[in-house]
């Protein structure tokens, strides 16, 4: 059975459109899968960021509580130590024997108490002038904690935001490809010469979509 050249040409065109529709649909499905994976990765980054937030606040709170506990002990130490020093000055100047004895006892008691509370705070945070440096203690404690756990949520949140933007861009590409399918479908059903215009339109959208997808993967790497 033979067919006219026009019918054969039309048939070839329809077949071509069907193949293009299938190809674009497959590409769209692949991009959809990719978008879903990237979306999952964005959720993971959010999770890591929140975990880092929690760690950071926990570390900050615990370090601060420890620092003030130490600082409180230092305050007690200062109370006794400075009192001992002040009594010592008076003791050196007194000539009254009774008073000297009382002052000497008070001085020794104060210094003994200072020594007793001395071990309740880390002496390494004392400056050369004998004053406590709470900022240094907090800074060192933070640095030590940062070596053991993630304390910076911002990179994770930034990554999550970037991945979400990528998902949006992939969806825009999918819309372009869907529009290409729309053109191909109309072109496939038409006998009119307009079908070639529609086919070219669909092809153009398909090419733009493919180019955008390739660019997206090359320029904005990352994701699942």
């Amino acid at each position: 059975m033979s067919t006219s050249p026009e019918t054969e040409q039309s048939s070839r065109f329809q077949t071509m459109m069907a193949i293009l529709i299938a190809l674009v649909t497959l590409l769209g499905a692949a991009l959809g899968t990719r978008a879903a994976l990237i979306s999952t990765a964005a959720g993971d980054e959010d999770f890591y960021g929140l975990a880092a937030s929690l760690s950071a606040e926990e570390t900050e709170a615990l370090n601060t509580l420890t620092m003030y506990r130490n600082y409180r002990a230092y305050a007690a130490y200062t109370r006794y130590n400075v009192l001992g020093d002040l009594v010592a000055k008076d003791w050196e100047q007194t000539s009254d024997e009774t008073q000297s004895e009382a002052l000497g006892q008070a001085m020794q008691t104060a210094w003994a108490m200072a020594v007793a509370v001395n071990r309740f705070f880390p002496a390494r945070y004392l400056n050369r002038d004998g004053r406590y440096d709470p900022e240094r203690e907090l800074g060192e404690a933070w640095a030590e904690a940062a070596m053991k756990k993630d304390l910076d949520p911002q990179p994770h949140f930034a990554a999550a935001n970037l991945l979400r933007s990528k998902v949006s861009r992939l969806l825009i590409i999918i819309i372009l490809l869907t529009a290409a399918v729309w053109f191909f479908t109309l072109a496939q059903g038409l006998r009119h010469a307009l079908r070639y215009v529609l086919a070219v339109g669909g092809g153009g959208l398909m090419l733009v979509g493919i180019a955008a997808a390739v660019l997206e993967e090359l320029v904005h790497r990352g994701g699942g």
């Binding site: 978008a35 949006s168 969806l171 825009i172 999918i174 819309i175 869907t178 729309w182």
Partner: peptide, 11 residues
Amino acid sequence: VLAAIITLLQT
């Protein structure tokens, strides 16, 4: 096509 656009909006 409309559904694809809504998918974008939903996402």
